[in-house]
Amino acid sequence: MGAARPGRPPGPSGPARPPADPGSGAVIEAAGLAAGYGGRTIWSGADFQVGAGEFLTVLGSNGAGKSTLLRMVLGLLPTAGGALRVFGQPPRRGNPGIGYVPQRRALDPDLSISAEDLVGLGVDGHRWGVRLSRRNARQRREAVAGALAAVGAARYARRAVGRLSGGEQQRLLLAQALVTSPRLLLLDEPLASLDLRSQQAVSQLVAELRAQQDFAVVFVTHDINPVLSITDRVMYIAGGRVSVGTPDEVITSENLSRLYQAEVEVLSDSRGRLFVVGLEAETVHPHSPVSPAGVQP
């Protein structure tokens, strides 16, 4: 699906990827999927697939049910209807094929644990008991060093995590999620509470890592502009409905107006950044109109 983007040259993931084989190669398959808690449905009727190596951006306002989708894929929340399969299996907790970075909250500034140890939890933090074997300790150290280098965090590997900046902490959580080489990376608002420069750096990093390691990405955000150039497809969640397609298909005045039965207008500025007007009740808009690296069409 990486190549199926009319009007857009290939993204930083490189040359066209063969489209995911539906049914067998798909990382996530959903048919008539509904999400909700305790009998209340948040959204329903979602039909989509995420192919191997695909980048899906999930857009929607706070409370639209974006994180709920991630929690269902992780097996932490039952589906409220329809079918959901992850790697061809029903979702289950502790799936080693999934890396997950939850919505960020600042770490305790007094926390003096080193960056290495935070990332190391991703390797064996779920195992019972204490680490005894020296060989395991060496393997763990190598895996952690590799993940830290991959996200460009090697230089603060031994620093206390509480004293690192938001962008630096976000890189560590990314390294922790990737240390087991997952085939699917779930990111929940990874750009929230980062400054614009860090937003661009983290988006770029995710794109580069995906190109190297070829995992699929589900990227939850309320502003598509920082990831517009690397997104294969967009999922737009608002008003209990879900629509999936390429950015050109989904984020258009006609489509959003039809979907939400409101007068919605999609504006595009000279750099190709998109602004949705008319879904104010449904959608949070980009915080700032300035984006240093820009996204050119």
């Binding site: 992780l74 939850p102 939890l121 991703g122 933090g125 195992r127 019972w128 008991g129 204490v130």
Partner: peptide, 23 residues
Amino acid sequence: LAAVYRPLLFASLDEEVAQARGI
């Protein structure tokens, strides 16, 4: 405490990720 050391540390530092990892 020794038996639950690693998962307890993980859950104490980052409960959400720990839960997603099956703890």
